[in-house]
């Protein structure tokens, strides 16, 4: 564990608390893509199935359980508790176009050709692109509540912070995880446009609005 990874994980935790806070206080899931949230449930379950056969640390297991539980809870909030506030007509990104390529990538790029490893690789690729329905929705509406942009910024920062972690691990442990690194760079890259608007507008006190 190094500082970058720890800050990345904290940022990931923070993003979930911000999202929960947004839903609970506004009593609405407006502006949040259900499809992206559902993809995260798939990502976490696929990746953290190793809870059953691999023990890394208490920290690691606790975080895994938290991410699975919180992502399922968010789906519950969106689908049942605050269902009327979710507008499916603007959340239309076809997730098949993400799931199928990720499955193919996982079958080609994995560290061992068995069920758990292919599933792990699948979750890594899927996580990289799971934000696309959300970004697509943002693009369509052209604006977002501030709290939603804070959520996205924290979520984007999480994988971005893993990049210095991988550089650090390369120099200190000689370890490189090419699948995670490649997907992580793609994942961070998808946020660049968003980060640009976030830093130049939201953090300057303006509303998040995309140029028409």
């Amino acid at each position: 564990m190094n500082i970058f990874r720890f800050l990345g994980d904290l940022s990931h935790l923070a993003s979930i608390f911000i999202l929960l806070h947004k839903i609970q206080t506004t009593r609405s899931c407006r502006g949040i893509s259900f499809r992206t949230q559902a993809l995260y449930v798939v990502v976490f379950i696929a990746r953290y199935l190793d809870l059953f056969f691999r023990y890394v640390s208490l920290y690691n297991s606790a975080m895994k359980l938290f991410f699975i539980a919180s992502s399922c809870y968010i789906l519950y909030l969106m689908k049942i508790r605050y269902r009327p506030t979710h507008d499916p007509s603007i959340d239309t990104f076809r997730v098949e176009y993400l799931l199928a390529p990720c499955l193919i990538l996982a079958l080609i790029f994995n560290y061992k050709f068995n069920f758990a490893e292919v599933l792990w690789s699948f979750s890594i690729w899927l996580e990289a692109v799971a934000i696309l329905p959300q970004l697509f929705m943002l693009q369509r509406t052209g604006e977002a509540e501030n709290i939603t942009t804070h959520y996205l910024a924290a979520l984007g920062a999480y994988r971005a912070l893993y990049i210095p972690n991988w550089i650090y691990r390369y120099f200190t442990e000689g370890l490189v995880d090419p699948i995670a690194v490649t997907a992580g760079i793609v994942q961070t890259g998808l946020y660049l446009d968003f980060f640009y608007v976030y830093f130049t507008k939201v953090l300057q006190g303006q509303k998040f609005e995309l140029p028409a």
Binding site: R5, D9, H12, D50, R54, V56, N60, M63, K64, F67, N110, Y111, K112, E117, W120, Y162, N165, R169, L175, V176, D177, A180
Partner: peptide
């Protein structure tokens, strides 16, 4: 175990 890091990251 094929992964270089042993999947010790989240």
């Amino acid at each position: 175990e094929g992964a270089p890091t042993g999947h010790d990251e989240l």
